[in-house]
Structures are given as structure tokens and as C-alpha cells.
């Protein structure tokens, strides 16, 4: 389980996170949602040690994150994080070199599934292909947790379907997933937990099935209530 306990973060004078606490269990899909600037990406980066926090704590399966742990937690950024001049095959070789849990077989399987070409250079990829390559590189690691930043942003409808299909496949089974997005509509039936953020504060968090069962509201309904105020 990934736990955030009263996490606070400032950028200069701007309070980006103002005491955020939530849990994301293993084997479930947790969605961080909120308008731009709500602090979604910052939370993922803080978990990955890509940006320091001022106070509060982050625990992964009970212990503080440390560098070696980033083999068990994978971060899929909304940008490609490989040098533009690398070919996809070079990216795979790079990952193989540094990660013991890189699963080449799955990487190649996904390459075919997403119809990407191993000889293509990173900077020649379209937005949709880049998003797929990003996701692929995350999925190809046998990790316990996966953090995905806006996996659907700038992605066309067909790529979106392909990406959504991954979340209902055995590739994510048993993993703890945190994803950020502000486009809930098409994936809302995939989500186990929803954490809603606004200006660095959690405004609401709930289990989506409970919300439907107890209040008869969809995640989108709740979003409307929360953000349209």
C-alpha cells in the first residue's frame, strides 16, 4: 500500500499540497482527479522522489521510499523520458541494463500490440505513439506499483481505447495503480478508488462502487458536484 500522511509541499510561496492524506492499496486502481494545478502530478513526483516535500510522510508498504525501491514502483510520466535520438530498441536496451525486473518478452508483446516500430526514434513519435511507448515501458517492468500521469492526455480516441484496454487486462492485475486524469468519463467503470483534489487539498475520496451503491452517483456526477461549486 502507498500511504500519504499529511503531505505538504510549497514551490516558493505557492502552496502546492496543503496536507494530503490518502491510501492507494495494491491490486486496485486509484484515480487522482482535479483541475489543472490541483497538485496531481506533484503527488506522483513526490512519491518518486522527483520533488521534495516540506512535511508529512510517504510510506510504501510501511517504509519510507528510497532509491532501490524505484524498481518496485514505476512512474509513467505524461512526457517521454528517453532522449529524442534514441530508437525504441535503444530504450529497451537501456531499461534492460538498469532494471533487473525489465520483462523483455512483455515489452516485445506490447510493441506488437501497440503497433510500434522498434527502429523508430523517440522524437519521431506522434503524441499517441509516445503515450503508448510510455505506458509500454511502465508495463514491461514487473513492478508492484504503477503511477501514471495523465495516460490519456493528447491521445486520440483509438489509442485511448487501446490504453484503456490495458487496465482491464492481466498486465495490471495484482498491481497497485495510481493514475491522474481529468478525463474520467471513458474510464470511470475501471476505477476502484477516487481521490479528488482542489488547490492542493483533498475535497473528497471514496470507493467508486460504494458511491454508486449508496448514493446512486457516478464518479462524473460527484466531480460535477465538487468542482462546479
Amino acid at each position: 500500500m502507498i500511504e500519504l500522511i499529511d503531505v505538504k509541499k510549497r514551490f516558493g510561496l505557492k502552496k502546492v499540497l496543503q496536507g494530503v492524506s490518502f491510501n492507494a492499496p495494491r491490486g486496485a486502481i486509484t484515480c487522482l482527479t482535479g483541475l489543472n494545478g490541483a497538485g496531481k502530478t506533484t503527488i506522483l513526483k513526490a512519491i518518486m522522489g522527483l520533488t521534495p516535500i516540506q512535511s508529512g510522510s510517504i510510506r510504501i508498504d510501511g517504509s519510507a521510499p528510497h532509491q532501490a525501491m524505484y524498481e518496485r514502483i514505476v512512474y509513467v510520466s505524461d512526457q517521454l523520458t528517453m532522449p529524442g535520438r534514441m530508437r525504441i530498441a535503444d530504450c529497451f536496451a537501456f531499461m534492460q541494463d538498469y532494471y533487473r525486473n525489465w520483462n523483455s518478452e512483455r515489452a516485445n508483446e506490447l510493441l506488437a500490440r501497440f503497433q510500434l516500430n522498434a527502429a523508430d526514434k523517440v522524437n519521431s513519435l506522434s503524441k499517441g505513439m509516445a503515450a503508448k511507448l510510455n505506458l509500454l515501458m511502465g508495463l514491461a517492468m514487473d513492478a508492484d506499483y504503477m503511477l501514471l500521469d495523465e495516460p490519456f492526455s493528447g491521445v486520440d480516441i483509438f489509442s485511448r481505447e487501446e490504453i484503456a484496454a490495458v487496465f482491464s487486462s492481466d498486465m495490471v492485475e495484482g498491481r497497485g495503480i495510481i493514475l491522474t486524469t481529468h478525463e474520467i468519463k471513458e474510464i470511470e467503470h475501471l476505477l476502484d478508488y477516487v481521490v479528488m483534489l482542489d488547490h492542493g487539498l483533498i475535497t473528497k475520496q471514496f470507493a467508486s462502487e460504494d458511491m454508486r451503491m449508496e448514493e446512486g452517483k457516478s464518479v462524473v456526477d460527484v466531480m460535477r458536484e465538487v468542482y462546479k461549486r
Binding site: A28, A165, S168, S169, D170, V172, H189, L190, D192, E209
Partner: peptide, 17 residues
């Protein structure tokens, strides 16, 4: 439940449930 999740495009947890 895996196949079902895949066919319906739902989360495997939901299929399990």
C-alpha cells in the same frame, strides 16, 4: 474473470467481485 475483465473492459477486481 481475467477474460471477462478483458472482454467487458472492466477492472479485474470488479470482475472478481
Amino acid at each position: 474473470r481475467r477474460e471477462l475483465a478483458n472482454q467487458l473492459g472492466i477492472n479485474p477486481n470488479t470482475a472478481q467481485k
